[in-house]
Lab assay of single mutants.
Amino acid sequence: LDITFHVDGKNIHVHGASEEVVRIIEELIKNNARAEEIKETLERLLR
């Protein structure tokens, strides 16, 4: 699975993920999660 995301100002662009995963990533970023935390969360979800 190949998910890429980047933050452009306040806009979060996520590619290669389901809508549910996109929402989770957006929440994590809004809550100022570190990249490592986001990665760990995604790995748990995608197991």
Rank of each mutant, 00 (worst) to 15 (best):
L1N: 09
L1Q: 12
D2P: 01
D2R: 02
D2M: 04
I3T: 03
I3A: 06
I3V: 12
I3F: 15
I3L: 14
I3S: 01
T4N: 15
T4L: 05
T4Q: 12
T4A: 08
T4E: 15
T4M: 10
F5Y: 03
F5H: 08
F5G: 06
H6C: 13
H6Q: 14
H6R: 04
H6S: 09
V7D: 08
V7F: 05
D8I: 01
D8T: 01
D8N: 06
D8C: 06
D8E: 09
G9H: 02
K10D: 14
K10E: 15
K10V: 15
N11D: 15
N11H: 14
N11Y: 14
N11W: 14
N11E: 15
I12P: 00
H13L: 05
H13A: 05
H13K: 05
H13Y: 08
V14M: 03
V14R: 00
V14A: 07
V14L: 05
V14S: 01
H15C: 06
G16S: 08
G16R: 05
G16C: 03
A17R: 01
A17I: 13
A17D: 01
S18R: 04
S18P: 11
S18Y: 03
E19G: 09
E19L: 13
E19R: 09
E19N: 10
E20C: 03
E20Y: 06
E20K: 09
V21H: 07
V21M: 12
V22Q: 04
V22A: 05
V22S: 02
R23W: 08
R23G: 07
R23V: 08
R23I: 09
I24L: 11
I24E: 08
E26L: 15
E26F: 10
E26V: 12
E27C: 05
E27M: 11
E27S: 11
L28G: 01
L28I: 05
L28C: 02
I29R: 01
I29E: 01
K30H: 11
K30R: 14
K30P: 00
N31F: 03
N32W: 05
N32G: 14
N32A: 09
N32E: 09
N32S: 11
A33N: 06
A33P: 05
A33D: 04
R34K: 14
R34P: 13
R34Q: 09
R34M: 08
R34T: 13
A35V: 14
A35P: 09
A35I: 14
E36Q: 12
E36C: 07
E36N: 10
E36P: 09
E36M: 10
E37P: 02
E37K: 13
E37T: 10
I38L: 08
I38C: 01
I38T: 02
I38K: 01
K39S: 13
K39A: 10
K39P: 01
E40N: 12
T41W: 12
T41F: 12
L42T: 02
L42Q: 00
L42A: 05
E43V: 08
R44Q: 12
R44F: 10
R44D: 11
R44L: 11
R44W: 05
R44P: 04
L45P: 00
L45M: 11
L45K: 02
L45W: 06
L45I: 11
L45A: 06
L46H: 09
L46C: 05
L46W: 03
R47S: 15
R47T: 15
